[in-house]
Amino acid sequence: MIDPNSCHRGIFSIDGPLPGYAFPTTVSYTPLGERLWTATDGIYRTVFAEGDEGVVAFDTFWSPAAAGSYRTAIDRLLPRRELHTVVYSHEHLDHCGFAEDLAPEASTILAHEEAAAVIAARGSDGQVVPTETWGGERKGFEIDGVAFELINPGATHGAGNVAAHFPEAGVLFMVDTVIPGVGYTFFPDWHLDSYLPNMRRLESLEWDTFVPGHFWPLDRQSFGDNLAYYERISEAASEALAEGVDPDDFPAIDAWAKERLRAEHGRLFRFDEYIGMNVMRYMAHHRTGGWGLEDAGGVVEGSL
């Protein structure tokens, strides 16, 4: 068991125990290919691969305890294997913040240079600074017999957020972009100006199964439907602004969104939880013109 008083704390600044970081989750795993697996605790999801000698794990889960549960799951499936490589999908702590708990022995921590810059400057407790970085848009890797390509389609969510393509398994893994159902809360750190065009670049790749960072895998149709949802919410936010809904007043936006969008999208997973927040974020985006340099000319033209 992890001690909530002494566990890694990310960037939490309050005193006292952090039981939320010490609560052990149950991580299960499912095969995606001959040596490729997906692991989930029911909410977070990632992938890991069996190498010739050891294990290549993507991401770390969301807390010190969850990272430990992820490691337990890997060790159960692939006992006595060295977890020598951790690949970060992006830089956020809730997916990549706890390599010290997952694999303190890992000799290689791999990330895109844009993610690595944030990680190094952040200095979060428990997050390991990448030992190896790469730049640009695409790069193929073969690590311990595990072949994959990392792809940065441009600004989507977070910094240096990359997709991992496993052509042999027909799998594309990418975190906090397409997620089943409506969007997560208020689209935290989504770069909405460029999100859709950059994500659609991934549709040109050969894959059958999209493994998201949360909940369950999707097929190509569901991937496209999910992106179309963003288009609709962007339009709905414009409608709300035109109708004079206060873009800062969440209760008013939530009521407007549920009344206006329930018939169209009410059956989507987590509609009631997040539809108001989804619309609110797009309203703020339209009003302010985007958040940060990522939203200023972040659309990448051309195919991958």
């Binding site: 990310g10 960037i11 939490f12 600044s13 969301w62 830089e91 956020h92 702590l93 809730d94 913040g97 810059a117 944030v118 400057a121 952040r122 200095g123 979060s124 997050q127 977070g158 910094a159 809360t185 208020f186 935290p188 750190d189 927040m277 958040w291 940060g292 990522e294």
Partner: peptide, 19 residues
């Protein structure tokens, strides 16, 4: 909700780092 995600995710970009 906005603020707790700052802590959960670690902030957004270089703006939310020490550098």
């Amino acid at each position: 909700i906005r603020l707790v995600h700052y802590y959960l995710m670690g902030g957004w970009g270089l703006e939310d780092t020490a550098r």
